[in-house]
Nucleic acid binder design. Structure first.
Lengths: 197, 197
DNA sequence: ACCTGAACACCGTTCAAGT
DNA sequence: ACCTGAACACCGTTCAAGT
């Protein structure tokens, strides 16, 4: 109960906007009792970030097996971050915490880095058959760039409180070529069966 | 004195991390006195965001007259956001506030939107001779996308506490084609003198 | 015009005390 | 094992009172 209540608040108001006293009221207990389960606010934050990562991992791995087309997977990926905005203009929990990063306890910093790594690793997997260069380094950099850019799109759209801004930005990423939206002509020309490998 | 002290704290710890009492201590006055100049914290935040916008506007307009090559201007632009990270891993003030957006007073929301508009307008001006399409709508969308992506790069790099991550991401934006790093072959082919118009 | 001390309701945290 | 009341040092805000 604590976790789910805390998660909703944190996605809407950030880690700083999370209050033990309010949380306790929602759960129907006194604030001192929250400390029984999570000794400090940092412990709660780290647990929040960890579960958030786990949930995303399951979701993304599901996409991986469900949709064999990497372009579709990329579309599902940008839809994940879109859904947060749909839901009361919320942000990705770990993206939010990244802004507050410098003031966070170490346990949380670890989780937030792990979240970013998870995203980048998954994107790299998806990108490998799509990007002309087969070099792992180039693909990894592109994966990192897409992760950063999607987070930026969420941030920009949030500050306009308009989900269409998100769609516009993501669409522009695809037009500009940052996010592949069809199999690369070069890659396709070289070997059309690459995706099935 | 209040403004400059507050600005340094806000870029490092965000609006939430800003304390009237600490601020007062730095300025050498009691916290109640800060309220004399800025009745509420929101008033201080709005003033902070406004001055931040003004400073950036001057800087960007300076680039506009100093460097006639738009590609150089774009490089100067990404350098502006790089400098925040160089300086104690700080973030763009308004980017930071964008994360906290939903909890901010209206006066601040107005300023943060104005900051985004300023960036997008300047970028659109720079992009117009670089992007193949001459359509204002396409250029405006690309400008918005670059603004969002640069903010995302800053956020991602901050949470790694590593400025090289910023450089990697921005470099990848250029490689992928999101940020033009040379005159578009198509545009150049059409009319080479476009930049001087 | 500018500053202050004191009070208010908030916050995370601690801890002795309860069941 | 789980919960609580009370205390602590923080926070923004208000306001009567000072100069």
């Amino acid at each position: 109960m604590i976790m789910s209540a805390a998660r909703a608040v944190a996605q809407a108001h950030g880690y700083n906007g999370l209050s033990f006293r309010e949380l306790a009221k929602e759960v129907g207990v006194k604030s001192a009792s929250i400390h029984y389960y999570y000794p400090t606010k940092g412990d709660l934050g780290a647990a929040l970030a960890r579960r958030y990562s786990e949930d995303l991992k399951k979701l993304l791995n599901g996409y991986l097996t469900e949709f064999r087309d990497p372009v579709v997977c990329l579309r599902k990926y940008t839809d994940v971050f879109r859904r947060a905005l749909e839901n009361r203009n919320c942000m990705c929990l770990c993206g939010f915490m990244a802004a507050e990063y410098d003031d966070l306890p170490d346990a949380m910093k670890v989780e937030i880095k792990a979240f970013a790594d998870l995203n980048v690793a998954w994107l790299a997997l998806i990108l490998s058959p799509l990007v002309p260069s087969a070099k792992a380094k180039v693909i990894g950099r592109r994966a990192l760039a897409i992760y950063a850019a999607v987070g930026g799109a969420q941030l920009a759209a949030r500050s306009r409180a308009d989900i269409h801004v998100y769609d516009e930005i993501i669409g522009s990423y695809r037009t500009a070529g940052l996010i592949p939206d069809r199999r690369s002509p070069r890659a396709a020309g070289k070997s059309r069966g690459l995706l099935l490998a």
